[in-house]
């Protein structure tokens, strides 16, 4: 049971990172990223492949973050003059293509066989039998750092600029700031967080293959942000550690509910996520959290 709890918490911590990344891009920046899972997958593969080549895990993680940030920025550049609808399809297309390349370029990624024997950071630091709890501590630490960074960013002048770009790009342009510049930077920072989350995923499972990465990652992240309240980092954390925890935790029901296999349970779980997203958007569009900013600005966001 304790092992199970630790495993679930680790998965939730990684999902929380993805949620925080999306909260920056969509919640604060108004930019829909439907290809989250692709960027996350890229982070996992960069970190995993570098580590098995002998790179120290932390160096591999840093490269993953930089690499995903750079590619995120490029994908934001593609939709330079276009509305959010297009950014959504560009990111989705990008993620799908990435998954194809990783699946078929076996010489580089070992294709469908997957990458095995990925080394975790600090794995010799922990006494025997405490490796998983040690890794959970690392994951939680990462969540803490990212949360603190994003909170700082939300309150900084740049954070105000990002929200202004979301609420009224025309005004930002009129003030002489480049909306494109803001979009690209938001996507890059979000990408770095996704790279971090993906890297942690690779370290945690020590094995990655293309089937682990699908739109479900994107779905969880949107759920976390919608429930938490767009723009609220605390809300995202709370919803990740309650809602996603429950959803992930329901995996253990397989042993208790007869007639329902793991795939049926997964289908039910995702069905709830899908319906929940729509219901929340209709009845509780601002979620349960609050964006860290003044009341005047909060009022304008409710009309989103």
């Amino acid at each position: 049971m304790t092992a199970y709890l630790i495993a679930t918490l680790t998965v939730v911590a990684i999902a929380a990172l993805v949620g925080l990344a999306l909260n920056l891009q969509w919640g604060m920046g108004g930019l829909v990223n439907f290809g989250l899972f692709g960027f996350y997958m890229l982070g996992a593969y960069i970190a995993g492949l570098l580590t098995v080549q002998g790179a120290p895990p932390l160096v591999a993680l840093a490269v993953a973050m930089i690499g995903v940030a750079a590619l995120s920025a490029v994908s934001a550049l593609i939709s330079v003059r276009l509305s959010e609808d297009y950014l959504a399809i560009v990111t989705l297309g990008f993620a799908e293509c990435l998954r194809l390349v990783i699946s078929y370029e076996g010489w580089l990624t070992r294709g469908m066989l997957g990458v095995t024997g990925i080394e975790r950071p600090f794995q010799n630091l922990w006494p025997r039998g405490f490796a998983d709890i040690g890794f959970l501590a690392i994951a939680l630490f990462a969540v803490l750092i990212v949360y603190a960074t994003l909170q700082g960013l939300a309150r900084s002048p740049f954070g105000r600029l990002v929200r202004a770009t979301r609420d009224d790009p025309g005004v930002v342009e009129a003030l002489g700031k480049s909306v494109l510049n803001v979009r690209v930077r938001v996507f890059a920072v979000g990408g770095a967080i996704l790279g971090l989350a993906g890297g942690l995923h690779a370290f945690y499972y020590t094995y990655i293959d293309p089937t682990q990465f699908g739109p479900i990652i994107t779905a969880y992240a949107f759920m976390a942000v919608v429930v938490g309240g767009r723009g609220s980092n605390r809300g995202v954390l709370v919803s990740a550690f309650t809602l996603i925890f429950l959803l992930e935790g329901s995996r253990f029901l397989v042993d208790y509910v007869h007639g329902l296999g793991a795939s049926e349970l997964a289908a039910i779980r995702l069905f709830i996520v899908g319906v929940g997203l729509v219901v929340l958007l209709i009845f509780k569009p601002d979620g349960f959290g609050r964006e860290p900013r003044s009341t005047l600005a909060a009022k304008s966001s409710s009309s989103l």
């Binding site: 969509w26 609808d85 289908a267 039910i268 899908g274 929940g276 958007l281």
Partner: peptide, 21 residues
């Protein structure tokens, strides 16, 4: 429009998993 985009993704996930179930 962005809200509708996200809602349509929710619809997509829900439908697909009814089928899977």
């Amino acid at each position: 429009g962005v809200t509708l985009l996200v809602a349509s993704m929710g619809v997509a996930i829900a439908l697909e998993n009814v089928i899977r179930f």
